[in-house]
């Protein structure tokens, strides 16, 4: 794809993510959606940059803050929105919800609400991908908080030992719940753990879409080429509270203002105005298009039926309805 077209495509994907999360927030505030929702507004560049190199048959896994990963991997936004809203038409029939999205048609294997739980699972997807011999790769997203879990360390070791086709994407947004990373570890850059386990690792500005895009391009091709795992640490920031309803009192207002300056979408748009000649009108149209698609998704979700009561305890085991 020529660069100018690629840039516009990436911008559109970021807007799709942003619009999705903003709509979820709005529907939550008005109680159309309930549940424990963790939004990734401000982290769009990581999801979009990372997934832009993936094939549909590559595997992606995420954690509790993973709406955007599923959207960026190409899952149907209508079915995602319906799932988060608990409707029968959602990807999981309403059984999964915000923290447990699965969209196998798009290669989104699972999200999990247990911090760190996705990392060993991703090892498995990578293991299977390697055995499958079709140059598939697996990508796992997790936060800085997960970097202090046992599962994280055990998984880094096995991935590098067995040279699994896996890209670890750490979204270091500086906070786990209400606590800054510095209060959880003396290791400021989680990429250093990967080095310890003998894995190539990069730390980069996660609000710079092109930086993520470039680094992920190399990481994914290394994994695809059978040269083992890569660790990519993206420094970023979530613009909302830890979960919807979190007043985020622990965060300095100045800090928020600083990160608003670094809003990955505005920044990228400014950059491609010069580099690819994006006009304000074009940008406006791209945003409007994304918002329209998401509005459609929201209307689809709202109009969808609730799951039938009889569904409550079906699918407990495979092969039993």
């Amino acid at each position: 794809m020529p660069e100018a077209a690629l840039h516009r495509e990436l911008l559109a994907r970021m807007w799709l993510n942003r619009a999705f999360e903003e709509k979820v927030s709005e529907l939550y505030a008005s109680r159309v959606i309930t549940g424990l929702l963790h939004l990734a507004i401000g982290q769009e560049a990581v999801a979009v940059g990372a997934c832009s190199h993936l094939r549909t048959d590559d595997w992606v896994l995420g954690g509790h803050r993973s709406h955007g990963h599923a959207v960026a991997k190409g899952a149907d936004v209508k079915r995602l929105m319906a799932e988060i809203a608990g409707r029968a038409t959602g990807y999981c029939g309403g059984k999964g919800g915000s923290m447990h999205l699965v969209a196998m048609d798009a290669g989104f294997v699972t999200a999990t609400g247990v911090v760190g739980g996705q990392i060993p699972l991703a090892l498995g997807a990578a293991f299977a991908a390697k055995e499958g011999g079709r140059q598939q790769v697996a990508v796992v997203f997790f936060g800085d908080g997960a970097g202090q879990s046992g599962a994280f360390h055990e998984s880094l070791n096995i991935a590098s030992l067995w040279r699994l086709p896996l890209v670890f994407v750490c979204e270091n947004n500086g906070y786990a719940e209400f606590t800054p990373l510095s209060a959880h570890t003396l290791v400021e850059r989680l990429a250093r753990h990967a080095e310890t386990y003998g894995m190539p690792a990069h730390t980069l500005d996660g609000n710079d879409l092109l930086a993520v895009h470039d680094a992920m391009g190399k990481a994914v091709s290394q994994a695809r080429a059978g040269k083992g795992p890569v660790f990519v640490e993206c420094l970023t920031h979530r613009m909302r509270g830890h979960y919807e309803g979190d007043p985020a009192k622990y965060r300095e207002l100045s800090q928020l203002a600083e990160w608003k300056e670094k809003d990955p979408i505005a920044r990228f748009a400014r950059m491609i105005e010069t580099r690819s000649g994006l006009t304000a009108a074009e940008h406006g149209a791209i945003e409007a298009d994304a918002r329209a698609r998401i509005e459609d998704a929201a209307q689809f979700a709202i109009a969808s039926p609730w799951p039938d009561a009889d569904e409550a305890d079906t699918q407990v085991s495979a092969g039993h309805g």
Binding site: Y28, A29, S30, T34, G35, L36, Y243, E244, G245, P247
Partner: peptide, 9 residues
């Protein structure tokens, strides 16, 4: 202007 949901439970 709605009373926004501010707590999960």
């Amino acid at each position: 202007v709605i009373m926004p949901a501010l707590d999960v439970t």
